[in-house]
Design a protein around this nucleic acid. Structure first.
Length: 172
DNA sequence: CCCTGATTCGC
DNA sequence: GCGAATCAGG
């Protein structure tokens, strides 16, 4: 199919009405959404609404790998400057060896690798915390919660065992 | 994985 | 001019 005046007009109409490229493609028939998008751009009516913000965020990563037929000796890579998070981060310090706190005092921010990750409370609540008691290396939970967490597993058969399950057995 | 538009570039 | 391929997001 080709872009007859009629089809182009339909395209414009539908596009301005807010239909998606694929919807328009289906309506018109005989074209893909890519074709529609391509045409839309050629017609210069890309950004439909909200021109407030640039449709294109100003940076273009370019596209490196593509079998370009023996192109000319490409110049220098032309460094692209992309804003890369200049913000200063406080970098929350998480104690490697957490203080032994009572249950439910560790938050997602203070939860260290060696702290029990047993959830306490409603995860969707502000009150949500983790157990936070000391947990052995490589074990997600403290002894008490490990027992609960792995209960169904504990009395399985052989259990040739993963590293974790072996550590676990030692641990419990 | 489904979808969206944006871009590039061989044709 | 066309649109497939590809990309960056939602």
């Amino acid at each position: 199919m080709s872009w007859t005046d009629e089809r182009v007009e339909t395209l414009k109409k539908l596009w301005q009405e807010g239909h998606s490229a694929s919807q328009i493609a289906k309506t018109l028939g005989g074209v893909t959404r890519n074709a529609v998008i391509g045409k839309v751009h050629r017609l210069g009516l890309s950004g439909r609404a909200a021109p407030s913000q640039p449709a294109r965020p100003l940076y273009k990563p370019a596209k490196p790998p593509r079998p370009a037929a023996q192109a000319q000796p490409a110049p220098q890579p032309a460094p692209r400057r992309v804003s890369v998070e200049p913000a200063t981060r406080p970098a929350v310090q998480v104690p490697a060896v957490p203080v032994i706190e009572g249950p439910g005092t560790a938050t997602v921010l203070t939860l260290g690798s060696k702290m029990c990750k047993w959830p306490i409370g409603d995860p969707s609540s502000d009150e949500f915390t983790f157990c936070g008691r000391r947990a052995a290396d490589g074990i997600p939970y403290c002894v008490e919660h490990s027992r609960v967490a792995y209960q169904p597993q504990q009395k399985k058969k052989k259990d040739t065992g993963t590293e974790l399950s072996r550590s676990l057995r030692r641990y419990l």
